[in-house]
Design a protein around this nucleic acid. Structure first.
Lengths: 230, 230
DNA sequence: GGACAAAGTTAGGACATACTAACTTCTTTC
DNA sequence: GAAAGAAGTTAGTATGTCCTAACTTTGTCC
């Protein structure tokens, strides 16, 4: 367990949050960390100082925080644990995709690297979790491709859903019912003005979703066929 | 998660320890709890008072502690989690029996009851863990059969190993090498005097083990054939 | 360029759990 | 039944994490 057990659960959560906010390299603001972890900003100030003392963060008072290389590695280890566990719960134990997150959130702090590696091996070394998020490799690299949100697709554009960002179970269940899932192909049929609902085609179905929801659906665009017809 | 998340990991560990020491109904002494959890006795005094305040223990100063019904139920839930996880790690993930304990020790505090139930279902509702210890059922009952220790078997007696008590990995590996495992049949061939080594037959093999080790091997005695021959 | 809002920090305290050192109670033995 | 040793407790302290309340810094807008 290299570098394990030395980090407490709260510390791992901070690092994960900072990584996610800063998407790899970027910085994170105190308030944003606080909000993501549902803590008071004052608590974050305190913790962030300690993490900086441990060399996990670069911290400048009043100017937010950045992961150091060591902090980034720790964050990615936790993220790997989280996502492998999610994938394993879904694959091997039949968990529905809207409930893997909560369970993984606790297990990620208790599972050894060996367990996580065995899980990954057992389900065939998955590259993404059930929401389509990429799983960091053991040596600390991740696919950092930035995908387009469904909310940004123009009318007529098609794409394959690669990922659903966010873990609110209700949202996930709803998207699941609509069959908006990683791997599904969708086409934007129309968009109402003033940020109104977006009408989609997927397979034989047609459906309408709001822009807030659409923003969570990340797609890999396909060749745009709209041009051919108009 | 009925009754979950309310108990911290240390609390669950205390209850489990007290249950194991008191084997169900019995009481536990402060020092014994301290030793089992590798804590100072003073720490136990403090915690035990708090657990009594929460109604999990009956506590009389200077006279040890007893689980209440509610404490016993909590202890058994944790024990179930622990043993199901051990069984699952061995069955589904190929963990060797000498390492399941350590991993389960951490996971048992993080796993939800649902996860544990899914694990149990996936491997066919096991009744014992990889060491042969009985798994409490969901409704809180356990097999409390008391088995004979191999150290107590007389020369000529035969039995089936039902359980190996204790989790020291080195001991488990050693017993594994000797093939002294749950389900194996053994016969006591001879015993050296003054608590000396015990010679066993198991299958075609013959081997000798010390009494301290033999005390950890619990057997279900079979009809004694020694009488027939002498 | 100063005032105000937003963002961030410090101070002081709470809680759970652990520790060591010093004290008390229980048990056993003569 | 008293002394010695074992067992157990209290007192005081430490650590990690959190909180609220009050303060400071930063950034923006006229």
């Amino acid at each position: 367990m290299p570098g394990r057990e030395l980090l407490t659960a709260p510390v791992e959560d901070y690092l994960k949050a900072i990584y996610t906010i800063g998407k790899g390299t970027g910085a994170a603001a105190t308030n944003e960390i606080a909000q993501r972890l549902a803590l008071a900003p004052a608590s974050v100030s305190g913790m962030v100082r300690r993490l900086a003392d441990q060399g996990l963060l670069a911290y400048e008072r009043y100017h937010g925080v950045k992961l150091t290389e060591s902090g980034r590695r720790a964050a990615l280890r936790t993220l790997r644990r989280h996502r492998v566990i999610e994938a394993y719960l879904a694959e091997a134990l039949g968990y529905p995709w809207d409930r893997v997150h909560e369970e993984a959130e606790r297990l990620e702090h208790a599972a050894s690297d060996e367990l996580v590696d065995r899980m990954a091996a057992t389900i065939g070394e998955p590259e993404v979790d059930p929401h389509g998020a990429p799983i960091p490799t053991k040596d600390g690299s991740v696919d950092e491709t930035v995908y387009t949100s469904l909310a940004d697709l123009i009318v007529g554009a098609s794409g394959v859903v690669v990922r659903v960002a966010g873990e609110d179970p209700e949202m996930l269940r709803y998207l699941g019912e609509l069959s908006i899932l990683p791997g599904k192909r969708i086409t934007v049929k129309s968009r109402a003005p003033y940020d109104g609902p977006i009408t989609l085609g997927s397979g034989r179905h047609e459906m309408s979703i709001g822009p807030a929801l659409a923003a969570h659906v990340l797609v890999a665009p396909l060749a745009d066929r709209a041009g051919k017809h108009g």
